[in-house]
Design a protein around this nucleic acid. Structure first.
Lengths: 108, 108
DNA sequence: TTCCTTTATCAAAAATACTTGATGTAAACA
DNA sequence: TGTTTACATCAAGTATTTTTGATAAAGGAA
C-alpha cells in the first residue's frame, strides 16, 4: 500500500520532469516563432531558416537542438543538409485545440 | 498592405511573448506539482501547501507569484491567509485534453 | 499595546540558460 | 586532391532564474 503510493509519487515526479523539459522547450519566443514557421513552411533546412529567423547559424542550431531533444520537432539529414519539421503528434498531445491552431496547418 | 503584414508580425510577436510567459510558468517541475495539488485539493493557503511541497515559505511564495502573474492560478485573501486555486479556464485554453486530465478534477 | 501568525518582498549568492565567435566534421563539387 | 557549403559543438562571457535567509507588513489573539 505504502509502496504503491510511493511508486505513484515517483512516477508522477518523473512525469513532471518530462513535461518540464517539453514546456521549457516551447517557453521561448524565438522557439515558438521557429515552430510557427515550420507550421507554415513544413520541412526546412537550417540554411533557409536562419535568414528568416535573423539568427546566426550556431544560435539557431542551439534552439533547434532544444526543440529536438524535447521531441517537439524531428530531423532528417540529406547530404550536408538537415531538414527539420514539427512533430505534429507531440504538439497535439501537449497543446489545446485552440493553441494547436497556431501550430497546425489548415485547422482554423 | 505592407503595413498590414508588419502589424500582423507585431501582433504574433506579442502573442509569442504572452505564451512564452505562460509556458515558462508551467515549465517547472515544482510548479507543475503545485498545480497538481491544487487540482486535487481545490483552494489552499500557503501554510498548508508549504509542508506538502516540502518548501520554505519564501520559496513557495516565489513560485506561486510566477503562476499567479501568468494567470495560471488565482488568489483570494481572507484575513492574513492567502488562498490559491487553479484558473481552470486558462488551463483549458493552454493544454490538450489529455494534459488537462492531470490538472482537471473528475475528467479521466 | 504587545506578541504571534501568515504571507510578501528584498538583496545576495548560486544555479541555469543563452549568446557569441571559433573550430570541427562531413558531404558535395571542381 | 583541395575548396566550399552546411551544420554541430565547444568554451567563454553574459543574462536570467532560482534559492536562501532576513526583514517587513498586516491581521488576530492575549
Amino acid at each position: 500500500m505504502d509502496l504503491q503510493i510511493s511508486l505513484k509519487d515517483v512516477s508522477t515526479e518523473k512525469l513532471f520532469e518530462v513535461y518540464e523539459t517539453k514546456f521549457k522547450a516551447i517557453a521561448d519566443k524565438k522557439r515558438l516563432q521557429i515552430m510557427n514557421i515550420l507550421t507554415e513552411k513544413g520541412e526546412m533546412c537550417v540554411c533557409d531558416l536562419a535568414p528568416l529567423m535573423e539568427m546566426a547559424q550556431s544560435r539557431l542550431s542551439y534552439h533547434l537542438k532544444i526543440l529536438l531533444d524535447a521531441g517537439i520537432i524531428t530531423k532528417r539529414t540529406e547530404g550536408t543538409w538537415s531538414y527539420y519539421m514539427l512533430n505534429q503528434k507531440e504538439i497535439n498531445h501537449l497543446l489545446s485545440e485552440e493553441l494547436c491552431c497556431l501550430f497546425r496547418p489548415s485547422s482554423c
